[in-house]
Design a protein around this nucleic acid. Structure first.
Lengths: 231, 231
DNA sequence: CGTACTGTTGAAGTGCTTCAAGACACGTGG
DNA sequence: CCACGTGTCTTGAAGCACTTCAACAGTACG
């Protein structure tokens, strides 16, 4: 179940990542005028942040962890259209009165800020910096969506997988990354779980991926992966 | 070459589609305060509206016609990430000072409004309705991008092609649509031109597509296409 | 200790690509 | 006006990448 940490009210003042997230540009004084509760939510893998079709009453900022945004085809098959990581914002459709467009499901233990619609609307009126920040987030989501299509839906399965891995290690230290289920990898790349499994196994054998003893993470040989990604 | 129609200044007042485009919600009095020239551009197939990397000084509204947004892979292959049709807006990255993210190239004879950055910024300060309208356009582009991935990059080539055709006829009267080059179809669906050609040919033979005598358009049997799209 | 779930691997089938050739429309110059 | 180039669409045949179906290993959990 979704576990809500000790209610923090407007603890945004002491938020360690405030400068990099949606409220970048806001002054401490602005934060103090937040009276609605901003919940800090901790979610474990497979837990659901929101479902497609839910009425959207809040926008979310990812503080840490990893989530997937999932859409479904008429026949019920799923397709993962984006990943969310630290500093990403999701649920912006809330600002337009639309229901959420995806299922947002946790892949790796996550910490998420839930920002009620009222807070955004109020801050938006009082402070013009938030508006710019919102546009930036919207555009970032759009750029991500386009990159996802070009990089992860084009070329051979091996190349797409290599690009996915490079994407996962980028921004993480030591070129290591924690993989997720083969089925999820499959629906990110539009391939079957078996093919995903075979490719990962092959990468391990060839040394492009290496197990780290005593860790769930894998070390990525980015040079090799880059060659494969070029296809 | 890009042909600029007789300069119209702020003829937005008499624009026939004003209510459905970016300036929906603006009053005639608002339009009168537009002093920068809003060019009305006519472009023929294969002409370029803008290129990826160009400094973005304007946002565009499509009045009629059809354009493609293209991104390129490191190896030079192209991928079409979205189509633009009447009432769509593109080039929103201009508002953030980013260069354009795609090549925007005309597929079918088009008429396009070029709205200089300064006009948007000025109207945005004077009139709050524009802000909402901008957010709506941003979200619409995002929804389009996600749908493109789920529908046109998932499943068999036949199913994807059927979904593309259904997309093209939706909104056009009489279930007819004008096709474009096989190569473009290929880079929309992530398949080769030969496969695109074979599938179209097969659709014609099976009756799912039918030539209209004396026209370049084709009639689509939506019932059949829907079955194929379900795959 | 059995059940359930995920990952791995094999073997057979098929759908798409690749390479190659021919058909057709278009414009250009002799 | 026809011959000729160029570009796009079509079609065939061969090869290969991915899927499908199936079996089995490993781990988690009651």
């Amino acid at each position: 179940m979704s576990k809500i940490l000790p209610p923090v009210g407007s603890d945004c003042v002491s938020c360690s990542i405030r400068k990099t997230v949606l409220f970048a540009g806001l002054e401490i004084s602005d934060c103090e005028s937040i009276h609605h509760p901003i919940d800090d939510i901790a979610l474990a893998p497979n837990e659901v942040l929101y479902r497609a079709g839910d009425t959207a009453r809040a926008v979310f900022t990812i503080r840490s962890g990893l989530l997937k945004l999932v859409q479904y085809l008429p026949d019920g098959r799923q397709r993962i259209v984006r990943l969310l990581r630290a500093t990403d914002v999701t649920g912006l459709e809330a600002l337009l009165g639309q229901p959420y467009q995806h299922d947002a499901i946790v892949l790796q233990q996550s910490e998420i800020c839930r920002i009620p619609l009222e807070v955004i609307q109020r801050l938006d009126q009082e402070n013009h910096k938030l508006r710019k920040e919102l546009m930036v987030r919207w555009q970032r989501a759009l750029d991500e969506a386009d990159a996802w299509l070009t990089q992860l839906a084009t070329g051979s399965a091996r190349a797409r997988m290599a690009r996915l891995l490079l994407r996962l290690v980028s921004g993480s230290e030591g070129n290591s990354c924690e993989l997720f289920g083969r089925e999820d990898m499959g629906s990110m790349l539009g391939i079957t779980t078996e093919t995903a499994s075979r490719i990962i196994a092959e990468f391990k054998r060839s040394g492009a991926l290496q197990e780290i003893p005593g860790s769930v993470s894998l070390k990525c040989d980015t040079a090799t992966l880059n060659k494969i990604a070029a296809d």
